[in-house]
Write a protein that binds this DNA or RNA. Structure first.
Lengths: 337, 337
DNA sequence: TTGTATGCGTTATCAG
DNA sequence: CTGATAACGCATACAA
């Protein structure tokens, strides 16, 4: 390995001068600088980030800890983080906690021991300990997607309640009245807010909440399928469905297809969160799309700010969703009820 | 920050002893070890990986550099890498080069300057320089998905040619004769091998390759759409299509839908690579599925081996694909031609 | 078995 | 403006 001392010797200057040239902080004689840069090129010198990090006691790496690398929401979000981070001189490394608190713990410890410059995390549970560990260690953190109670951190969330409310209101607008809801795990803030939005839309329209039309599942495809089956089998007779995430929407759709129920004629469907290639699914799906890329961008900006101003007040960003109306929820023949 | 010296003082031993206890290499008196571990717990000591890395001149981080974080193939592959890596005591960080050679370059330099223990990379171009840089620097590397010529590295590839051949042969079996092909960028080995497979199946069946039935696109949705449109508009009159990756398949399907062509009645379709929720698309899509998770596993195993045996001969793994027959390619009424 | 001392490659402080 | 030198926190060769 070629070190800064090799370069110094080759250029006939001191190691300190090489360092100064490389970092551009202090003024250095142009002639010397020139000698240094050409020596660097000639020797193929690349600075040892580990040594540098040790000296500066921090790296230029951001850890983005997401709860599911296979969920399009997160991958799209990561793109937003990257674009800001790279521009700010940081590299982004992605860690997949896989909805597993233990893996998440491991990555957090890794981020800490590796002295990462900052962490953006979508918590895989409502356990507060892990994130608290980061905060207590003085590691800049931004929490995204899921709310964590009792922690004063920067956060970037989407307006889940309002998104769900719009989706449900849209179904009501279209003339549907027996609107079922497949909600997510109640310990996730995203799930409870979406359920709240569903209830609020019903209330606003003067419709009562019918417990027989509500199911809670696990945000997975199988869960959505089972919940839909249960709704149909128990005689709740829904004429529409609001499903609280993308995978459960897919599961519910599969159930409807299997039972030869027509969408939206027999049952209309609106799903929360984007589904890749939603246009290829028949019928095309009405969705509440989240600004995933923008979530990433904003989180990155907050993290950059937090790094430079560790003591600034915590900022909480709430981004709007957008209802994308497609075929699965188009107006039914008005029943005039 | 609490260092190894703080622990040593608290436990009444030397820093060296603390280090030994922590790493478990050397023998140390159980009583002392006990004092050390309890001091570690009491002080909340966590070792500084950066200092450790500097000393050992390597980290316990693997970089997985993929060319598209939004492609399900790669995310699934990453899961395979993770499972092996974690078991072997490494952490995995994901880097998204976004099919951009420049970003890829940056991440490679980062992996080098950060002294990563190893790199698994799916090259975003056929440029050999970047990977060569890694090799020359002695960084253990495994190349996946795409072939890189003139480099003696461990590789894990899938049998693209055979997969494409099976897909095409399947269409021939089903009675289709005018089988079109939408190929990928010719500088990617995956694309050329899939094209070769298509041609070989035609040859085996005694069918001639008709240039008017072949288009090359960019592995993206838009490209697939345009290629399909061109095939239809130029009067090539295909009765089936083999599309060389998932996104182009989706694009081609969209074109067919838009033109009210029935699949598979008017045109049968087989796509290479998995498509999430392929079962929801109507008709369901016949695909050549790749063992993405297994690619990751094998790559991880090779990397682990390469780290321990830097001078071992390069291993090249070739994994089989699997044809998953669904509705889009089912037998047409035999024309007896 | 345990402790002492040194160096990993940088950057920052301080004299010059 | 430049150079010598001391740390950063840890692991290890060597001495005890």
């Amino acid at each position: 390995m070629v070190t800064i001392y090799d370069v110094a010797r080759h250029a006939g200057v001191s190691a300190a001068t090489v360092s100064r040239v490389l970092n551009g902080h202090a003024k250095v004689d142009p002639a010397l600088a020139e000698r240094v840069t050409s020596s660097v090129a000639e020797l193929g010198y690349r600075r040892n980030a580990v040594a540098r990090n040790l000296r500066k006691s921090r790296t230029s790496l951001w850890a983005v800890i997401i709860s599911d690398v296979e969920n399009p929401f997160f991958t799209s979000m990561v793109r937003g983080v990257e674009d800001i981070a790279l521009a700010a001189g940081y590299s982004v490394v992605l860690c997949n906690s896989d909805e597993n608190p233990e893996k998440e713990s491991n990555y957090i410890v890794a981020a800490l021991t590796e002295q990462m410059a900052g962490v953006i995390i979508s918590p895989s549970s409502n356990r507060v300990d892990d994130v608290k560990l980061l905060l207590d260690s003085g590691c800049p953190v931004v929490v995204i997607d899921r709310e964590l109670h009792g922690l004063r951190t920067d956060t970037v969330l989407v307006d889940n309640e309002r998104g769900a409310e719009q989706a449900t209101a849209h179904l009501i607008d279209q003339g549907y009245r027996r609107i079922a809801c497949i909600g997510g795990p109640r310990w996730l803030s995203t799930a409870t807010h979406r359920y709240d939005g569903y209830r609020r839309a019903l209330g606003t329209a003067g419709l009562s909440l019918e417990p027989s039309l509500v199911r809670f599942a696990d945000f997975r495809e199988r869960g959505g399928y089972d919940a839909m089956a249960s709704l149909l089998d128990d005689g709740a007779e829904p004429d529409a469905l609001f499903a609280a995430n993308n995978l459960m929407t897919v599961g519910a759709m599969e159930c409807l297809v299997q039972r030869d129920l027509a969408v939206p004629t027999d049952i209309a469907v609106v799903g929360f969160d984007t589904i890749p290639w939603a246009d290829l699914i028949r019928p095309t799906l009405t969705t509440v799309s989240q600004p995933a890329y923008e979530v990433g961008r904003q989180a990155a900006q907050l993290l950059a700010r937090r790094i430079t101003k560790p003591d600034a007040d915590a900022t909480n960003v709430l981004l709007p969703t957008e209802l994308q109306v497609r075929a699965s929820s188009t107006r039914r023949i008005s029943t005039g009820e």
